[in-house]
Amino acid sequence: MIEIASSLLLFLGAFFYFAGTVGLLRFPDLFTRLHALAKVDNLGLGCVLGGLALQADNLAVALKLLLIWPLALVASAAISYVIARRADALGIVPWRENEK
């Protein structure tokens, strides 16, 4: 039962990572790609880490796995903020549907 739940979470995480890659390849400009990468990839990471934490032998390993996720969330939020503010300061205009 635990193995089935763990495998399902792993596959769900792989699907979210795939969605993030498709977003990076297909979205038109920097800000939309940032939106795809920063959110979807971290959701995939959360699913993978949760699926692995179900298999952990003891509580310490599971808690360490679940500690990696908030760290990655904070890091990705900080990186996205820095990149978006820097792009705005460099004068990069966000993409609009009608203009191009």
Partner: peptide, 24 residues
């Protein structure tokens, strides 16, 4: 350069995922 900047963001999350999967 903006596209290359996104690589750093991507490698953070994907690399962590791959390492956790390799550990298990």
């Amino acid at each position: 350069d903006a596209n290359r900047l996104l690589a750093a963001l991507l490698f953070g999350s994907t690399g962590v995922g791959i390492l956790a999967l390799l550990a298990f």
